[in-house]
Simulated assay, not measured.
Amino acid sequence: MHKIKKPCGFHCIKMKDIGVSFGDQVVLEHINLHIHCGSLTALIGRNGAGKSTLLKAILGDIPHTGSITFSDTENGKMKKMKIGYVPQSLNLEPNTPMNVYDLITSFRYDYPVFLKNKKLYQEIKEALAEFEADHLIDQPIGKLSGGELQRVLLSLAVMDEPNLLLLDEPVSGIDKNGMDLFYEKMDYLRKNYDMAIIIISHDLDYVAKYADKVVLIDKTVTADGNPKEVYESQAFHRVFGDATYAYGNNVGHVRKVEAKEAPYEAGYKGKKEEA
């Protein structure tokens, strides 16, 4: 079971002048962000604005210019950043024979999945229990609902207690109860794990309620700050139009609105279209 480790406030992720291009197409340019542990940062913006591309750059899945560093300002050391990642979706066949235990064992451990290990089984079950998914340990992956799979992937992503957790629209297509549970878990993670969380989201009301920092992306950073600051910016209204919202004690609610279509494509061959 995870032992609570309050965020120290010293660890940070720095992105300096990040740029991504595919051929002649510039997808991202001049991205500069500074994110501390114990915080939830939401990336918002129109479809095709470069949000998922930024996560892929952080993961090292695509080449980029600029630098991404993890620093410990308490003692000045630089160390390798541990990153957890939950994708928007996984393409799984309904008849996939692998169950949840097999999936996590194959990713997390150097141990043959066909040999059941009681110690590993219990460790995985405890990790799943943090996200109310321990009852799914023997379930076939292809039979899980979207919300169930999301909880399994979250359990896997945080088992190594990463310094940075990246979430690419992980609640797409999930009902309100599932959304409530998800964001409550994100609130729990940032309070009880020494990590920074970056989430791509189109759910502006949840972002307003839970995010510490909001970054509006449109090839570059067009607005960033707390939800109130970003939602009241001209850049926000150019993308989302006239959203209505009201804040009390810096916790807000915003009417859900759809991002306008992007004037350009940000996808590239062999990869899923940019979110």
Results as ranks from 00 to 15, higher is better:
Ile44Cys: 01
Leu33Met: 09
Lys219Ser: 10
Asp102Val: 09
Leu54Phe: 03
Gln25Ser: 15
Val207Tyr: 00
Val100Thr: 03
Phe70Glu: 03
Asp168Gln: 06
His64Ala: 09
Thr105Met: 08
Lys79Ser: 14
Thr53Arg: 09
Glu274Asn: 09
Glu161Trp: 03
Phe70Lys: 10
Val27Leu: 09
Asn177Thr: 15
Tyr183Ile: 05
Gly225His: 00
Tyr210Ser: 03
Ser67Thr: 15
Gly241Lys: 06
Gly9Phe: 03
Lys176Ser: 13
Val257Gly: 01
Ile200Ala: 00
Lys14Ala: 11
Gly146Gln: 04
Ala57Ser: 08
Asn192Leu: 04
Gly225Leu: 00
His11Ala: 10
Asp218Phe: 09
Pro63Cys: 03
Asn249Gly: 08
Ile198Glu: 02
Asn91Thr: 14
Ser233Thr: 11
Asn163Thr: 11
Gly248Tyr: 15
Pro87Gly: 03
Ile199Met: 10
Asn163Cys: 09
Arg255Gly: 13
Tyr101Thr: 11
Lys116Cys: 05
Gly146Pro: 02
His30Tyr: 10
Arg190Phe: 06
Thr69Asn: 13
Lys5Phe: 06
Ile13Val: 14
Tyr231Phe: 14
Met15Trp: 07
Gly146Trp: 01
Gln150Tyr: 05
Tyr111Ile: 06
Ala275Asn: 14
Gly178Leu: 05
Gly19Pro: 05
Asp203Trp: 06
Ala235Gln: 03
Leu43His: 05
Phe236Gly: 00
Glu93Ala: 14
Ile13Gly: 01
Tyr268Lys: 08
Tyr183Thr: 04
Ile104Val: 12
Leu204Gly: 01
Tyr101Glu: 05
Asn249Cys: 06
Leu103Phe: 15
Thr73Cys: 11
Arg46Thr: 10
Thr222Lys: 14
Val113His: 09
Glu184Ala: 10
Lys56Ala: 05
Thr73Arg: 14
Met186Gln: 07
Arg108Pro: 01
Arg108Asp: 01
Thr41Glu: 00
Val158Gly: 00
Tyr210Asn: 04
Ile4Cys: 05
Ile174His: 03
Phe70Asn: 06
Lys185Thr: 12
Tyr247Phe: 15
Gly248Lys: 15
Asp61Thr: 11
Leu156Val: 08
Gly38Thr: 04
Asn32Thr: 11
Glu123Gln: 15
